[in-house]
Design a protein around this nucleic acid. Structure first.
Ligand SMILES: [Zn+2]
Ligand SMILES: [Zn+2]
Ligand SMILES: [Zn+2]
Ligand SMILES: [Zn+2]
Lengths: 159, 159
DNA sequence: TAAACTGTTGAAAGTCATTTTCAATATTTA
DNA sequence: TAAATATTGAAAATGACTTTCAACAGTTTA
């Protein structure tokens, strides 16, 4: 559960290891699934994407992929532990690469403008792991999400 | 942000103080809104309820109230800080009385059967408050939710 | 108290993210 | 290569939630 600081994160490559992960559960590696993973891998900055945003980005870069395929692929990848599903906004889900492909972190969301800031705090993950173990649960995932109003939006309201 | 341990929680009563809270924002106290609050106040045990469950319970106890009214009332009450909105299951929202009417706590959810366990952990809330302040956000709400598989469901799968 | 004003309700229609259906296509297996 | 099985795109379906609107209720004013 502890994250080693300053360790380079493993980089999921779109080739053979992804295929292995999929095949292990009877899934196949398709170009569409590969493209979705590559998008997460290469778009390091704005890396909380909704299904529609993923679709839009891929279509924009010339890929032929339908929105249903996006939704199906997201399910598969969450199930395989490649992606995390996040509840950042009211009406849609967001996705990001899951640990260990990215560092485990939590989210601070502005409910006005949707801006998201991330922060790491090992103690939180530790509390989660402890509670889970104490109660005999198998831990799948945990999220600490803070909803608030960012400084910019505070000013905007004040004017 | 600190919670005093062993302090009796204030008990929202369905009478005048609820009226005051509503009126302050231009809302009115109606019997429907009162009934919803009473349901939360009196059903101490299974106190994470979806809109549909609230509706079902009230209809079952003979109240005349529509599902649209439930949804509207939930919005109003969340806005007033009387209720908290929770992301416990995939496809619907759950609600519970918010602090200070109940103690501030976090949730451990079994993704198989939906069972929910609660736990208090002040350090988490403190971390949240700290991060929020550091970044200049106004804190509205924070949730730490752990998703896992409960012991019973582990056995069920193993058989 | 009554009229005017404003908020609320129920029923039904609408919205919209997500899921499912199904025939065509791609990948894997034999 | 052919059979077997998984995946895809397009369109229809689903379902939680929201909105519309006319009737109704609580509040304010005179
Ligand atoms: Zn903002
Ligand atoms: Zn993130
Ligand atoms: Zn369970
Ligand atoms: Zn709770």
């Amino acid at each position: 559960m502890m994250t080693e600081p300053n360790q380079p994160l493993p980089r999921i490559n779109s080739g053979s290891d992804l295929k292995t992960v999929l095949n292990k559960e009877g899934f196949r590696l398709t170009s569409q699934r590969q493209k979705i993973l590559e998008l997460f891998r290469d778009v390091a900055l704005d890396h909380h994407l909704s299904a529609e945003e993923i679709h839009h980005q891929l279509v924009e870069q010339g890929e032929k992929i339908s929105i249903s395929t996006i939704y199906r692929a997201l399910h598969v990848m969450v199930g395989l532990g490649l992606l995390q599903e996040l509840e950042l906004a009211e009406d849609r889900k967001y996705y990001e690469l899951s640990t260990p492909f990215t560092s485990h972190h939590h989210h601070l969301v502005c409910v006005q403008c949707g801006a998201v800031q991330e922060f790491e705090e090992v103690s939180i993950s530790d509390v989660g792991a402890g509670e889970t173990q104490t109660r005999g649960f198998v831990l799948l995932n945990s999220q600490f999400t803070i909803y608030g109003v960012c400084p910019r939006c505070q000013n905007r309201l004040g004017s």
